[in-house]
Computed example of a mutant assay.
Amino acid sequence: MTEPSGDSKPKRPVVVPAVALVAVTAIGITALLGGLEERPDPAPPQLAVGKTLDQGQFETEFVESKVTLVKAENAYSKDKRYLDVVFKVTNKTDETVRVGSPPDAQNGGSGFGSSLLKMTPQIKTPYGPDLYAVSKDVQSSQLQPDVPTTVVARYEMAGSAQPPSKVTLDVGTFENLENPLTGNTFWTLTTEEGYLDKAETKEVAATVTLPVKAEGAS
């Protein structure tokens, strides 16, 4: 009979610290789930002069941005300079709607204007920009159904302030929702969390960059 070898002493088990096991497990789960870092949402489309955006309720062409000088009407008034952002807007609904106003620190704006979420750089004016439609040199606050209409967002420039070389607009879109209690539908700005969420933020559908034409440029 063969004698057992002299190295018959049982080997001590290898002790792995619990912290190391937890770390390894966490790394495995993290790898399985694709990592802890969240992937950022893709940037909205970048649009330029002449491009068109389907906003749901409207179809909008971004025409230009320019500096406009309005001469004083009499000796008691002064010349004024404005930065004008010009759109061609088609109301795609069957009803006449208001041009509205862009959002500001106090409210979320209204009508077509509410979709002009942000302009960079900001042109600070006491009461915000004037937003109006122009048809045959007549200003209006309305957009008729299915009629491409020039819309101007006019920002008054203070004193001798220099205009920016370009402006960038964050623009939203509208979605048609139904009231479950009445069955009536209504247009509202598209949001990222849903229109019933108190923490909702307006969805930027496109970022539009327009060079600012100098005063008197054609």
Results as ranks from 00 to 15, higher is better:
K66E: 09
E38I: 06
K78E: 15
G28C: 12
T60G: 07
L181I: 12
A23S: 15
T25F: 15
R12L: 13
F62G: 03
E178H: 03
A18P: 00
D7K: 11
D104N: 15
V24F: 06
P4I: 15
T190I: 08
P129L: 13
A199E: 11
T168E: 13
A105T: 08
G172M: 05
E61F: 01
A158I: 12
V67M: 12
G194I: 01
V16H: 12
T120D: 15
K202E: 11
D130F: 12
L33Q: 03
Y155P: 02
K66S: 08
S218E: 09
T93Q: 08
T188L: 03
K118N: 14
E192T: 12
V19K: 15
G159A: 12
P44H: 05
L33I: 10
T150K: 11
P180M: 10
P103S: 05
S218F: 00
V15E: 04
R81L: 00
F186I: 02
E73W: 07
N184P: 01
V19C: 04
D54I: 06
D7Y: 14
D84L: 04
S101N: 07
T60W: 04
R39A: 14
K118L: 14
A206Y: 08
S135W: 00
P103Q: 07
P145M: 06
K51G: 00
R98W: 07
L83M: 00
K202G: 01
L69A: 12
T2N: 12
R98Q: 11
G172F: 05
A20V: 14
D79P: 04
E193R: 12
P148I: 02
K51S: 10
Q144T: 10
K88P: 01
E175Q: 10
T90E: 05
F186M: 03
I29Y: 08
K71M: 09
V49R: 13
T209M: 12
D130C: 00
Q139W: 00
T120G: 02
P126K: 05
P103T: 04
T68Y: 00
L116K: 05
K9T: 15
D170G: 03
Q162Y: 02
D137R: 03
I27M: 15
D197T: 07
Q57N: 05
F87A: 10
V19T: 14
V49F: 00
F62T: 07
L196I: 09
G183P: 07
A199P: 01
A214Q: 14
G128N: 06
P180E: 06
D79V: 00
V14M: 09
S160N: 15
T150C: 02
E73T: 11
G183L: 08
G28I: 06
V147Q: 11
S160R: 10
V19I: 12
T30L: 15
Q139N: 01
L83Y: 03
P180R: 11
